[in-house]
């Protein structure tokens, strides 16, 4: 199964929030609902000896996806072909357990339709391999990459290959969730903060 995910190069991210807005337009999200957000981490230190970075977050495509584990109906599932964690809205009963179970709080609940939703990696654009997710396409920093970690020729693998291990991070996962999303942050930009 491929390991498709986003890779985000924080060295390039300007915190402009364009990824949020392009996602909202692409996925017709109502006010107050998000599939992604950008957090300002810091500044830490004391002016002027400080550092900070922007941390764009969305579904991390966990290898051990708690959302899938807790779902009573199988509505939250891992697509066997793409390997992507998705929600089958027809099966979703809106119990929100997946929202409680997601360790990162990156799922949203549609009050209107009574179903759980989240970043789909823009499957409607990307499934046939022809287009990039909206947030990747429009990203002003050129900071977002989409593809299969297992494919050395994918955009994500190529971007990661440019950096040393010390620059590559994942969100903390104390219960062994193994998120796939990789963040690139060079120590020269700022030091990665473990938020958990």
């Amino acid at each position: 199964m491929p390991r498709k995910c986003l890779v985000i190069n924080i060295d390039r991210c300007t915190g402009c929030d364009s990824c949020i807005v392009s996602c909202k337009f692409e996925n017709h999200l109502p006010l107050g609902t998000f599939y992604n957000r950008v957090m300002q981490v810091g500044p830490t230190g004391t002016y002027p000896n400080i550092e900070r970075y922007n941390l764009p977050v969305q579904c991390q495509q966990c290898t051990h996806a708690r959302c899938v584990e807790v779902c009573p109906t199988g509505a939250s599932y891992r697509d066997s072909e793409s390997g992507i964690v998705l929600v089958n809205e027809a099966k979703c009963i809106g119990c929100q357990y997946c929202l409680y179970a997601c360790p990162y709080g990156v799922r949203s609940f549609s009050e209107e339709d009574g179903v759980a939703r989240k970043c789909t990696l823009c499957q409607h654009l990307t499934a046939d391999g022809k287009a990039d997710p909206a947030c990747v396409h429009n990203c002003p920093g050129g900071a977002r990459f989409y593809g299969d970690l297992d494919d050395p020729d994918s955009a994500v693998s190529r971007e990661l290959a440019k950096y040393d291990d010390e620059c590559i991070h994942t969100l903390g996962a104390p219960e062994g969730e193994e998120p796939l999303t990789r963040y690139i942050l060079s120590p020269s930009t700022a030091h990665w903060k473990e938020l958990v």
């Binding site: 957000r37 950008v38 981490v41 810091g42 941390l55 977050v57 990162y104 709080g105 938020l195």
Partner: peptide, 22 residues
């Protein structure tokens, strides 16, 4: 008290997207 270890979307809305105390 039911916070997960990270609760990005709610935090973002409440804190103007800032993680200040890290």
């Amino acid at each position: 008290v039911g916070a997960g270890f990270l609760f990005f979307f709610e935090d973002a809305q409440a804190n103007r997207s800032a993680i200040l105390n890290c």
